[in-house]
């Protein structure tokens, strides 16, 4: 599905070199490592927000390393939910898919009836649920998650981890999670690798 071959990136110091990964359809992987080791940068490189120094990226057999981020079909959930303040929840979701089924997408993430809410009024966990719904509406071939649970309290984080996992599994959407929290990594992913 997604093949990362010899990915290398340095910025002042070396962040990662010769990183290899093969992600199979529907598979969920977690990458752990201490903060500052380049986990976030790795995800940003995979989805195209940053350029790799060297290495190949193949998605469904196609080389995507030269494509712009918006052309790669890879979704990313940021550490802190990115919601646009000039739009309400529905408007934010429409950015993912203009004609998508908003009601259903909200039901799926457990946010039924939140369409008209202003994004400032959402809590951290609610925000992450909305951004997950939005990312899924865009129908990514792979979803990347950059510590989306780290800013939440333990109870909430645990619930969200299992919710997100089951949604992804249901949709057979392959995903890569990076986190420094081994517990979360183990609960969320099929297998864990460390960077």
């Amino acid at each position: 599905m997604l093949i990362c071959k010899d990915l290398t990136k340095s910025f002042d110091k070396e962040l990662f070199s010769n990183f290899n990964l093969e992600l199979k359809p529907g598979e969920i992987v977690a990458i752990t490592g201490p903060s500052g080791c380049g986990k976030t940068t790795l995800l940003r490189c995979i989805c195209g927000l940053e350029d790799l120094d060297s290495g190949d990226l193949l998605l469904e057999g196609r080389d995507i390393s030269t494509l712009n981020a918006e052309e790669r079909g890879i979704g990313l959930i940021f550490q802190k939910a990115v919601l646009y303040p000039h739009l309400n929840v529905e408007g934010n979701l429409r950015l993912g898919n203009k004609k998508g089924d908003i009601t259903n997408a909200l039901v799926e993430v457990g946010m039924e009836g939140f369409e008209e809410r202003r994004v400032e009024s959402l809590s951290g966990g609610e925000g992450q649920r909305v951004s997950l719904a939005r990312a899924l509406l865009a129908k990514p071939k792979v979803l990347l998650l950059d510590e989306p649970f780290s800013s939440l309290d333990e109870e909430l984080s645990r619930r969200l981890v299992s919710d997100v996992r089951s949604i992804l599994k249901e949709r057979k959407c392959p995903a890569i999670l990076v986190t420094h929290n081994k517990n979360i990594a183990e609960n969320f992913a099929d297998y864990v690798i460390s960077l």
Partner: peptide, 27 residues
């Protein structure tokens, strides 16, 4: 305007023109 606004839109597959008209301009 946070850089993440633009980056997040990219990962949602939104084109440059739509990022300008639907996100930057309204903000």
């Amino acid at each position: 305007i946070e850089p993440a606004y633009d980056e997040c839109a990219k990962t949602l597959g939104i084109t440059k023109w739509r990022r300008f008209t639907e996100i930057k301009l309204p903000l």
